[in-house]
Design a binder for these strands. Structure first.
Lengths: 371, 371
DNA sequence: TTCCGTCTTGAATCCAAGC
DNA sequence: AGCTTGGATTCAAGACGGA
């Protein structure tokens, strides 16, 4: 085993190929300090129990694959520490790593990263523009995943293309929260049956931003949990070299086909990375949370014929009618609908102040620093 | 010390006061299972070396940087584990905790939470609408902080006011990413010199959303790192009881003054939108007992594709299937479940009348004559 | 061809009361 | 404690089909 490792170390890196096998073993067989960036999407250890149905009775296709099952936190920690150690050995001194996860695993991954000597640069939140809702109404919509960006060690001269990310963000400094859609439509790879080829395929837009921001053309990017090869595909488009490691033959096959089709600097694919921006929706509740209105305060219709009291959750109560500013307005007017923003005002210093001015105020703040 | 602890345990909770001292000691002196919610904003400086025990690892040289780093992490982990354990002891079985942190400490906090038996419900991102920019352009703008919401244990029946949070968000399910401004302006407390009284004062909007969403009026909320008392201030406004613990006299003083000025919202304003689950259950059989439906009468599915006959005991029979309104509906639709109240209707005067209107009628009567 | 309504789907730790 | 039963619960996109 040692002989084999030594022999391989002398060899050149297997660039732009997908290696098969357990990622820890494979990584240990590659020459140390040879990789510029690692992107890793390890199993999340979701610990799902029963089935879950949508309100329309359809069943959610859960991630129940064997590769996501661990017997305990300790087992998961051991796995995490081992692959992180192997990954760190492969990194050049100025190399860096990105790891993505959810609340199920990311805290353990982050702690292991720190324990192993990585130096966290940022945690980055991928805010999904179209997440799956919480169907039972028992928790908050799980609308984001967390990525950790870390250098190999404290003081490492990691790559950060500040200006490139700034221009991706319309001239404003890129923030630690990125709004991007999940991977759907034609980008989502299907198997022979027409089912999704991989349960957790990441969007190319995410990798695009990561690779533009933290690698240069010609850099070597390694992905130890290659899956269907999103990292490789984006790396190839952007003129970076990739190395993929994947245990499952089915995923490797899909990834090979995908990569064969990818062209460097694919214009169309880069378009995907730009997220749309619409007029931000301002919930009325924000006016209460931000202290612009106080629970218990009265709102008046602009014609002063009706009034209603603001409650702590942003609903109104007036004459036995409870509901949103729109619902209560409509009910009081006997109208099918009502724009509460223009219907209601408050009295300040004897004057009527339409509540819409508060919304405009919040929108103005948001416009200062979009996205 | 033990005597004091025992004596205190027998006492009533020191509600709506700020306790001075080390939070671990103070928490251990309070009676167990007495608190509904804990909000914690722990310090994350890793400069705890020397104060606490070093890890038992004799073969590593003391001047090794990696060892220093590990030592520092180990000390922080020890501190975290201890205060979390004390906090968990204080929680009622159905209690919950919120902890806020940044990438410096949140991964260690999250892992400790899991190790100590808390059950993570969501991680929530506070996305700052006005963060401080990264001046040196070496990293992404650190524009968010992370909060972890966890129940005392797996299966705990934590409080979650789903409808209230949905209302705060204009009728759309609340997500795990919250856009709120940082604490500035008149809300930001100043000391005698006009400098900020506390370096990391949290905005009241953040606590408003947390307390509306995960507590009820009258609940006891504890904050072991009270600082300038944002948790207490919002708790008081919202008609919750608070207990603060703070080590620094200067912060306690600022907090006391602040809390003295806070007014509670009026009772009506504290009522929030309720889930349908909170409404009293009405057995279908009541509709027959009260003569709203006659045995032998036909019910029709809303799409008129199925029908079933009402029996005297409140069960249905249709196409060989017998059972409750829910069971028969589910069986006819081949669905895993079915809400019979919204599935079935009767025909009166040629019109379809959903049977749910009868349930609402009964509930209205119950509200008129409670108990 | 375009528009509009319907159907499908996504890393999910997703129920609670009563017997 | 464990089982049974009632009945509450979803948002944004893209695909697809019919007008």
């Amino acid at each position: 085993m040692t002989t084999k490792t030594k022999a391989k170390s002398a060899q050149a890196l297997p660039l732009n190929t997908i290696l098969s096998g357990d990622c820890i073993e494979v990584m240990n067989s590659l020459p140390e300090a040879s990789v510029d960036l690692i992107f890793a999407d390890p199993p999340y250890n979701l610990q799902l129990k029963g089935e879950l149905h949508r309100p329309d009775n359809s069943q959610v296709d859960a991630v129940d694959d064997a590769w996501d099952q661990f017997s305990s936190f300790a087992a998961y920690d051991k796995f995490t520490t081992e692959w992180l150690r192997a990954a760190r050995r492969l990194l050049k001194p100025n190399g860096a790593i990105w790891v993505i996860g959810s609340y199920h695993n990311i805290f353990r991954v982050g702690a292991s990263l720190q324990n192993e000597g990585f130096w966290i640069l940022n945690d980055v939140v991928w805010r999904k523009s179209n997440p799956m809702p919480n169907f039972r109404g028992k928790r908050l919509t799980n609308a984001h995943e967390t990525m950790i960006w870390a250098s190999k060690e404290e003081g490492g001269k990691y790559t950060f293309n500040y200006e490139a990310l700034k221009s991706l963000n319309e001239g404003i400094q890129m923030r630690s929260d990125w709004v991007l859609p999940i991977c759907t439509g034609h980008e989502r790879l299907k198997d022979a049956n027409g089912d999704k080829a991989h349960p957790t395929q990441k969007p190319e837009s995410l990798l695009h931003r990561i690779l533009v921001g933290s690698t240069n053309p010609g850099d070597v990017v390694l992905d130890p949990f290659f899956g269907t090869g999103t990292t490789g595909a984006v790396a190839k488009m952007l003129g970076r070299d990739y190395i993929g490691i994947e245990r499952e033959a089915a995923y490797r096959e899909v990834a090979e086909k995908r990569l064969a089709k990818v062209r460097k600097y694919d214009r169309e694919a880069l378009q995907v990375s730009q997220s749309k921006r619409a007029e931000p929706r301002v919930p009325f509740g924000q006016l209460i949370e931000r202290g612009m209105l106080r629970p218990g305060e009265n709102l008046y219709s602009m014609n002063l014929r009706h009034k209603a009291k603001v409650r702590a959750d942003g609903t109104l109560i007036g004459d036995d009618i409870k509901g949103s500013i729109h619902q209560v307005g409509a009910a009081l007017e006997g109208a099918p609908s009502c724009n509460g923003w223009t219907y209601w005002c408050i009295k300040r210093d004897g004057k009527q102040v339409p509540i819409d001015v508060f919304r405009q105020q919040i929108r103005a703040e948001m416009a200062d620093r979009p996205n």
